[in-house]
């Protein structure tokens, strides 16, 4: 029993095993903390900052911070939500996110966070960067306009030998996630589907498939992201 520790999120008493990260411990206790770069079963990276919480007056990413005994976490407060909203806005202006023309619209986690935080317009100027669309691979399209560099695909989409189909290229503001052409030519349809599913935005698309679900029946049309997590 000594392995169990108590902590609080927004004043709610929670309990978890020692060593768990705040995001997963919160989920166990029925509390939703938004994530973009993080996903279950993947080593956290803390790069998108959307899961930022306040602990002891300091801002921390909850996907990379392990729970400590007696820890008090502030998550669903006006200050933190305002910060998360501005992160969503920055992601929207730094890429080319044309929701009306995107195949992932309605199932996109970035868009769903825009809905959650009621982003009516980003408060930052649009960058409109010039980015490429790579449609060379036989099964998937990699649209750099929509990529938020979360690294989920690099970490989860691998061939039988454990080689990643995606990789980072270049550095700084030129950084992009690219598809290995040779490995992509041999990927299975199942792996292509998984790549599209794991991408939080519409940057990875399965070819010859789009707008499968009608408007009104998509994941985030009627229910907000995280609303399936119940206290």
């Amino acid at each position: 029993m000594s392995n169990l520790i108590k902590f609080k999120i927004d004043g709610v008493e929670c309990m978890t095993e020692r060593g768990k990260f705040i995001v997963e411990a919160a989920l166990e206790n029925g509390i939703f903390i938004p994530t973009l770069c993080n996903m279950p079963g993947v080593k956290p990276k803390g790069s998108c900052r959307i899961c930022t919480v306040k602990i002891n007056g300091r801002l921390m990413t909850s996907c990379t911070t392990p729970v400590a005994d007696g820890m008090e976490v502030e998550s669903n407060s006006t200050e933190i939500n305002e910060l998360r909203k501005s992160i969503v806005e920055l992601l929207f202006v730094s890429g080319n996110h044309f929701c009306p023309a995107c195949e992932k619209s309605g199932n996109c986690e970035l868009q769903a966070l825009g809905y959650l935080y009621q982003m009516m317009v980003p408060r930052y100027p649009y960058e409109f960067p010039l980015r490429e669309v790579d449609a060379d691979s036989p099964y998937i399209i990699k649209d750099q306009n929509r990529c938020i560099l979360c690294k989920r695909c690099i970490k989860t989409i691998k061939d039988e030998q454990g080689r990643s189909l995606f990789a980072f290229r270049d550095r700084g503001h030129r950084l992009e996630v690219v598809l290995d052409k040779e490995l992509a030519a041999e990927m299975t349809p199942e792996l292509a589907e998984l790549a599209m599913k794991n991408c939080p935005v519409g940057s990875i698309l399965v070819k010859e498939k789009g707008f499968v679900e009608p408007i009104g029946k998509r994941k985030f049309d009627k229910t907000a992201i995280g609303s399936d997590v119940k206290l």
Partner: peptide
């Protein structure tokens, strides 16, 4: 009032931005 995506962010016509 900016009504709709095009008024807010340029929308589909803005696909030409950068070209």
């Amino acid at each position: 009032i900016s009504l709709g995506e095009c008024a807010i962010m340029g929308g589909l016509p803005a696909l030409r931005n950068g070209i």
